[in-house]
Write a protein that binds this DNA or RNA. Structure first.
Lengths: 343, 343
DNA sequence: CAATCCGATGGTAGCGCTGTCAATAATTGT
DNA sequence: ACAATTATTGACAGCGCTACCATCGGATTG
């Protein structure tokens, strides 16, 4: 594939153009808008590119054209499975397009997010995807000044910076509790770790559902700011049991905690769902596989990633959606762990 | 922070220099090597930058300096927890440095990898981190021609492109089997999914350990090219039982499979470790939490990410390690699932 | 057949920054 | 005190590409 690029002769667009017998600008157009060339020139440039092994210089392109083909993606965590799925959607959607993805990780810090956005600004990205709706005022200002399409993902709210894809965590939390209540449970515990804004809203759904049934009790709530793990699920559950020994169900803000609760139940010989119902959140793959299988709230994370990228690319290319906020909803996946009668 | 950057007046380094009363080149040095400026100029430039809200143009910088401050990272999967940990190390190490990370995902395809490397070449990254040692010849050629430090991660081998951080998957597989044999098991099954090169080498460790004990039997091996899931662990285990009902242990190439096996055992009332020992690989967090707790091989993924970045940055800045290949080893984490006597 | 339009192509002029090297100021040794 | 050295600073040119027009031939039209 192409003659070795010797030290002596750098291959620039000019060299390609010379070999193809066209002007540099025509060679340039070959990459950006090949249809604009006549067939003969297109072929001549094409073979010159291959012959010389030409590699375009992205920095020069960006400088001259005042834009890049980078879509920035800002997420709070790489370790969290939830974002892995979103990212899979993001990368799947961006592949095949001309755009490449630049990832940044806030570690759940809005100050870090602000810093990263500042960094992105220097890169003049073609588009941006950010997580959640709780940016600092400064972050919002940066986003608004950046002059490129922006999509907020994971949740939806009233005042999008630009576009949004997500679902209502409040509604999802509320729906999960409603389901548990329907199963006849009354003392429903709440287990929360890393209380980020979305988890907070799930809690509010829990709280309001419980209040509506006149069953809310602060003793039923155990939370921590520590990052989530399966082991932590067991620990929090032990704390909950100490506070409220009479619980008959637990709602966990994520599936790792739920699995930890299940293991702790096995350790303590607590029968699930006989003695205790368990409901998780996110519907990770293992939930259906556990014994008993674990109820969870399925969130369409992969689709979220896909849509976010598609919306951004469409907007970059002038095809703005008529509706800037896209609600992907959620599905309650009812399984053995919350069906006492089926035990 | 800085006056709004109005449409009319673009803020370039020139503007900053003018306001600070220095030449543009001095202002430029302020960013790249502040110690070279006298204190007074440094302060003047600093306040001019803040006053104008100057944002450097990275493309111009890259074009003029012939380099970028991007480290490319090529991994096969985003969904796999294993790489999430590596990436955490990568991002942790790169933070605070001047370098930013550009991620690319091959989806376990070496052709996709080749394509991505070609793309990276156009960006002239400052350094590169790639997964594994099984690149295509073309990929290797690209890596070698790229003229920047390269670190191969996840495993180690004989002919590094440049540098390496990892461990021997063969040794790890061999060690896991040796441990199971020591516990008195004889019919040890092997469960493998997505047989990538590293998984393949774990298999070779299994095979040789079994052969050394004259216990190898093809009927004990069940593999698939399907990506790994917990559910798949259960399915493969069912297949294994059908092939070899007399097994007394299972070695799973990763922890998801191991968890799936555990669940399947619970479903079938197979006592672990009484009837069957289980050993996983990677030592994900939940392994210690499961009931019974699950034996696994701990791999130092976070450290791998950290070291890879550190080595690359050091090499970029001229501090090459004396030893280009770094073996991070592994630890066998023996837990209840492989200790029959303790049951 | 002139007037008009359109598609294909090229010339010119930078984009915003930094490498190189020379020039100047500050510091040191003897 | 003066040369030699070292810290600071600046002038100039140009990185490789594309935006912006201008051009030019040929097709279309009335």
């Amino acid at each position: 594939m192409g003659r070795k690029q010797t030290k002596s002769g750098k291959i620039r667009l000019t060299e390609v153009a010379k070999l193809a017998g066209v002007s540099p600008i025509t060679a340039s157009r070959f990459f950006r808008n090949p249809e604009a060339l006549s067939l003969s020139k297109r072929e001549r440039v094409d073979s010159a590119v291959k012959e010389l092994g030409y590699v375009p210089n992205l920095a020069a392109r960006a400088l001259a054209s005042h834009r890049t083909e980078v879509i920035g993606v800002v997420i709070p965590s790489l370790t969290n499975n939830v974002f892995a799925d979103v990212l899979r959607g993001v990368y799947d959607s961006s592949e095949g397009s001309r755009y490449s993805i630049q990832l940044a990780n806030t570690r759940y810090s809005i100050l870090q997010e602000e810093k990263l956005l500042r960094l992105f600004r220097a890169q003049k990205p073609a588009g941006l995807i950010v997580t959640g709706i709780n940016q600092t005022a400064e972050s919002r200002a940066i986003l608004e000044s950046m002059n490129c399409p922006v999509t907020q993902i994971m949740e939806i709210g009233d005042s999008p910076v630009d576009m949004m894809v997500g679902f209502s965590h409040y509604d999802a939390g509320f729906a999960a509790i409603s389901h548990i209540l329907e199963q006849g449970c009354r003392r429903i515990g709440f287990l929360g770790a890393r209380m980020d804004p979305r988890v907070q809203r799930r809690f509010e759904g829990y709280r309001d559902a419980m209040k509506a049934a006149s069953l809310f009790d602060p003793n039923l709530v155990v939370t921590t700011s520590v990052p989530t793990t399966v082991t932590l699920g067991g620990t929090l559950f032990a704390d909950l049991l100490a506070q409220a020994p009479d619980i008959d169900a637990v709602f966990c803000v994520n599936d790792d905690l739920a699995l930890g609760v299940l293991f702790e139940c096995q350790r303590r010989q607590i029968s699930v769902p006989g003695d205790l119902s368990i409901v998780g959140f996110n519907d990770l793959e293992f939930m259906a596989s556990a014994v008993p299988s674990l109820t969870s709230v399925r969130t369409n994370r992969y689709e979220m990633g896909r849509h976010a990228v598609t919306m951004v690319i469409d907007a970059i290319e002038g095809r703005r959606p008529q509706e800037p906020v896209l609600d992907l909803g959620f599905q309650l996946m009812v399984r053995e762990s919350s069906m006492p009668q089926s035990a």
